[in-house]
Amino acid sequence: MLDAGICNYVAISYGHSGLWGGGMRQLLFNTRPSEACFGHFGAVGRYALAAQRGMHEFSSGPETWKHIAMGQRKWANLNPAAIMHAKPMSEADYHGAPLVVEPFRLFDSCQMNDGGRAIIVTSAERARDLKHRPVLIMGMGQHNPSNEIAQARYLAGPTGAHKAGRAAFAMAGIGLDDVDACQIYDCFTYTVEITMQEYGFFGRGEGENWFQGGTIEPGGTMPVNTSGGQLSEAYFMGLTPIAEAVMQLMGRCGPRQLGPETRTREPQVILCSDNGGALQSHSCLIFGRG
């Protein structure tokens, strides 16, 4: 539409009242009677089913997920807008949190919150005349493998991230080595692990090693979810990762800004993911500094 001149600017917005409205609760508590009669409700149970299979097939598990939960919390501690801004998380906090749907504990799950996010899409040419440094969409890919969790053959991979990631990198004409940071859709800790594994950041089952030692934290070699993400900042569907990627590339992130301030690389390229259902649909977006 932008290319055809039908419109000049497109606003993509998302907002919800997750704490008191119906929408988020429906995601969490409602499901079809054929699942509810067995006591199976909503997103936590579905992703936990995937995570358990991941534990079985490639030794995923809490020893990997704690690095994701604690690493993202450190970013949230630098972000005044994050719900968990004032709450550091220790390893004892992570392991001591109540089990929700095992293998997931409380801090394996994203936030429930009120709020919203919006982004503006326009042509690169128009963007260059605007107030902020432009951010370019370098590549995108999508893959949607199934619509039934019980029939899914990919709970431990290959998920939609595998093909979607390849398509996005092919369009961008770059490789993994060119990525400076990632904003990964993180409804649950396992989602971050399986998504980054499918993109190829580490081999199958090598996540525990890869994440340990502060890889994704401030000062780390591959910062991930630098706002705190959905786990520790706030949940706005795919707009939590995308808005953060764009803000980081514009250089508008204050104390959590990638670069010298957080002892990280100044970002030229940021990789984003989004998925729907329980790993049933996947989008990968690669953004670059304009």
Binding site: A36, G39, F41, G42, G45, L49, A50, L99, V101
Partner: peptide, 10 residues
């Protein structure tokens, strides 16, 4: 695969 519900969803 399997999971264990520890909280009351319903």
């Amino acid at each position: 695969t399997f999971v264990v519900y520890h909280q009351v969803f319903n």
